[in-house]
Design a protein around this nucleic acid. Sequence first.
DNA 1: GTCTATACTCTGATAGAC
DNA 2: GTCTATCAGAGTATAGAC
Lengths: 205, 205
Amino acid sequence: MKKTPTEVKILVSAKKVFYQKGLKGARMQEIADDAGVNKAMLHYYFRSKEKLFDKVFEESVQSVTPVLMNVFLEDSDLNTKIAHLVEMLIDLFMNEPYLSNFIVNELSQNPEKLFLNVLDLEDGLIGKVIPLINQQLQVEIEKGNINSEIRSAELIVNIMSLCLFPIMSQTVLQKTLGIDDERMIRFMNKRKQTVTQFVLDAIKP
Amino acid sequence: MKKTPTEVKILVSAKKVFYQKGLKGARMQEIADDAGVNKAMLHYYFRSKEKLFDKVFEESVQSVTPVLMNVFLEDSDLNTKIAHLVEMLIDLFMNEPYLSNFIVNELSQNPEKLFLNVLDLEDGLIGKVIPLINQQLQVEIEKGNINSEIRSAELIVNIMSLCLFPIMSQTVLQKTLGIDDERMIRFMNKRKQTVTQFVLDAIKP
DNA sequence: GTCTATACTCTGATAGAC
DNA sequence: GTCTATCAGAGTATAGAC
């Protein structure tokens, strides 16, 4: 079932508004105005605010997971993989500044919205990625290239923290450090190198 | 002006509800019920939902900043300071699991709520902490104890990222990694050591 | 200070014409 | 499929008695 132009317009605007205001803060009227369509159209296509939200949320999660999974599963050594992951995370979430906030926020407020099938537990993070990274870590440890302390879950959490937290707290960061939008973008771009270096330094023996 | 018992009860409950549901998601009735007082009392003491929210928000930020500032300004060497900061951040925000989310969320949705006077720019982070840490870094670099790449703002952002992101994304983390509340607490407690080590390893020459 | 009852507003949702 | 008009419910806020 192909999406009509109106449907697409609604989804684009819904994404924009839900990202910034959240489920409760968003107004159907605002979404309609932004999309340039009548408010009744939102209900015609999506029945209810909640269902529209779920659609947006699902598409958001699905826009992220395959990209990350590709990096995790690519055929490259650990250092390269870390560099790629950092770059990918920062690019991905800087281009959608509200996305990380949106996912984390809405999920902590409505944990039931975490459809496990979307995150694909069996074939996803736990099933494939963690073991794979564990194995790569093991190889590097045996080669003596990294210290044997770090665990894969820990490493992944650390990398995601270093990449995503500054984006999520961008507002606070910019105001407290007194930097404008342009400098923030430069700061985060530079972080692609510094975070990678920071992580590599941290795990080398 | 001393707070009456009722006023205190309302603030405690308001904190609880606002933390979890946010400004828009919270209901005055829920706060009243939780506090065991009449809904009209909330308006009697705080006039409006927004004003009650502002009060809660202000107290939240003020409960955090002095504690952190103390660590930054304590008279200890850099390594000790980093260890303390990590421990403090994790303890502080694990005890109030929704606090970090609350602050970051509401601030990214309503940037105007960031009263600069609360964060105390002149005497606070930018004015005192950053220069101080910079100076400490300089000393350690000259002693040859750390590599000369890292900047103080970067270091602070990294430490906060490593401590706060896992707490903020606790829901997602627990579900994707399939760990229960108790193991999560152990995981974060262990992180006090591993994050400290990770950071120290990252900055040593 | 505290309660009950009520007013008012906002907004999600639907009915029905075109 | 799209629009106008309208309803119904929820939720904030206030008036007024005690």
